[in-house]
Amino acid sequence: MGRGVVHPVTMDRDELQPLHPNYIKAVRLTTMLLVLPFAIGALALESADSLPRGSFVLPVLLVALYLIFRTPLRRYHARGYQVDADRLRVVRGLIFRSDTVVPFGRVQHIDVQQGPIERLYGLGTLVLHTAGNHNASVSLPGLAHADALAMRDDIRAHVKRETM
């Protein structure tokens, strides 16, 4: 349990752990739900017959397909994390790449969140809260829910050990 996930890795630059592959599906489903109103809107405009056939549906469809199939994949590959003995590193972002390290010694409290879509795919989001104004909460989505819970327990155990 848990131990499989949290093996100590050295702070090597590129040795990032990928997220759970289900993360791609979850992001796809979320995107679909977001795109849905626009698709309906395009269909409605199309039925008004004001412009040549397809001038609303086609662009919307192309953009939607890109957002649904390509972006989640790129997002997945852009994300990663690394758990060391005393710190968590979270890498994210397609255009603005951000690479955050939170030492466990600075964690105030820990959330494990699970939205409806995440629950469908057995995923969870780990959120670490720190006292800093910047990066007050660092979230790591797309973990298997059990792994998120195990990481939470390890971080909490670390906090306890440090203060003994």
Binding site: S98, D99, V102, H134, A136
Partner: peptide, 26 residues
């Protein structure tokens, strides 16, 4: 300090620099 973040925008990635954001309480 509370946390360390390195952020790089599109331009920064091409030109080899980065912003370092440090978490300070308050």
């Amino acid at each position: 300090l509370q946390s360390v973040e390195i952020v790089r925008g599109p331009l920064a990635r091409r030109r080899g620099y980065a912003d370092v954001k440090l978490g300070v309480a308050g």
